[in-house]
């Protein structure tokens, strides 16, 4: 006979299906499913009611149904654009093949499709930018945090600067970063777009602080007992950092990384919007400028998608943290 085992969170549903619910399972069902669904339903209702009463210069504020329709049309536009792109490439292939037949010595020139980016292209751009910015920030913040945590001299030297730059808004950095990138990054054959670099550096500058602070605190709070163990074993400086300091600081480091990624995502949208850099922020800005009757609905789709992606990024970090960190109690929800 085969016995099926269910994950514990599925227990209430199985019990519901078999008609044997205990009090605790009702509680679990309420907590996991009913209350969240109710919360969302009430929110949608209030939204609909409020939307009907708000008239803007672009028409009535979109309710849930309008937003759902706009989401559908964004998907359609994306598919249409992809179809065009495929058609473009087919045509190009055919043209080149035909010309090569007549002129075998001709060097074929391949062109990229240059249609306007769709909503989904913008999501992709934003994700790549935020990840690059976050990675760059981590590559700077983690080693620097370790140095600051290990050396009180380095801490004394850096602390005023950290305190000064930590609260700076991305909007203040942006013009400077833009100008510096334009001045420094001059090549004929750019590997990446300038706008990408501007957004990425702005994101890095704003999101490296939590990782830096948490790493350095994690490093300073290594238990004295473990430091003594390291001394008795005569671990050299490198082994001491690798075997004792880094693992000790890892839980704090991850807490910092998670905060940083959250900030990175928020900053990115603002930076893209302000600097007209490709990405979700630009999508919002373009729709706002465009000012058609559907714009508000489309912006609302973007708002929800931005929220969802932020949430998913956080879950991703949480999963990574759970997998890598030894101190499970340090992993909060």
């Amino acid at each position: 006979m085969v016995t099926l085992t269910f994950p514990t969170w599925m227990e209430p549903y199985r019990a519901l299906a078999t008609g044997k619910m205990t009090g605790d399972q009702w509680q679990a069902l309420l907590r996991q499913l009913i209350w969240p669904v109710m919360g969302i339903a009430i929110f949608l209702l209030l939204w609909q009611l409020a939307a009907q009463r708000i008239d803007t210069s672009l028409g009535q504020f979109p309710g849930p149904v309008d937003v759902w329709e706009q989401a559908g049309s964004l998907v359609d536009e994306h598919q249409a654009s992809r179809a065009k792109e495929v058609a473009f490439h087919e045509r190009q292939e055919k043209y080149i093949a035909a010309r090569l037949q007549q002129q075998p010595e001709w060097e074929p020139v391949y062109r990229d499709y240059t249609g306007a980016p769709t909503f989904f292209d913008q999501i992709g751009t934003s994700l790549i930018t935020v990840m690059s910015g976050f990675l760059l920030a981590s590559l700077i913040a983690i080693p620097l945090g370790i140095v600051i945590g290990l050396s009180s001299t380095a801490y004394a030297a850096m602390n005023p600067l950290i305190q000064l730059f930590k609260p700076v808004s991305p909007l203040a950095w942006l013009p400077l970063v833009t100008m510096v990138v334009s001045a420094v990054y001059v090549t004929d054959d750019p590997m990446v777009a300038k706008s990408f670099l501007t957004s990425m550096f702005t994101v890095s500058l704003c999101c490296l602080w939590p990782t830096l602070m948490n790493t350095s605190v994690g490093v300073t709070s290594v238990s004295q007992d473990l430091v003594n163990v390291s001394k008795v074993l005569r671990l050299n400086a490198l082994s001491h950092v690798r075997k004792i300091v880094l693992p000790s600081a890892l839980p704090m480091m991850f807490t910092g990384l998670r905060l940083s990624l959250g900030i990175a995502w928020m900053v990115l949208i603002a930076a893209e919007m302000l600097a007209q850099n490709p990405g979700l922020g630009k999508f919002v800005w373009d729709e706002f400028q465009n000012g058609s009757s559907q714009s508000l609905g489309r912006i609302m789709v973007a708002v929800i998608v931005i929220g969802l992606i932020g949430f998913l990024l956080d879950r991703l970090m949480l999963m990574l943290q759970r997998a890598l960190v030894w101190d499970k109690s340090s992993v909060q929800r």
């Binding site: 007992d225 003594n228 163990v229 001394k231 008795v232 074993l233 005569r234 030894w326 101190d327």
Partner: peptide, 19 residues
């Protein structure tokens, strides 16, 4: 003059590396 493994220490609260 300095700590070393020829004078191994057992600490009061174990001091094992938890990871």
């Amino acid at each position: 003059t300095e700590p070393g493994p020829e004078r191994a220490v057992v600490f009061q609260n174990h001091s094992l590396l938890p990871w």
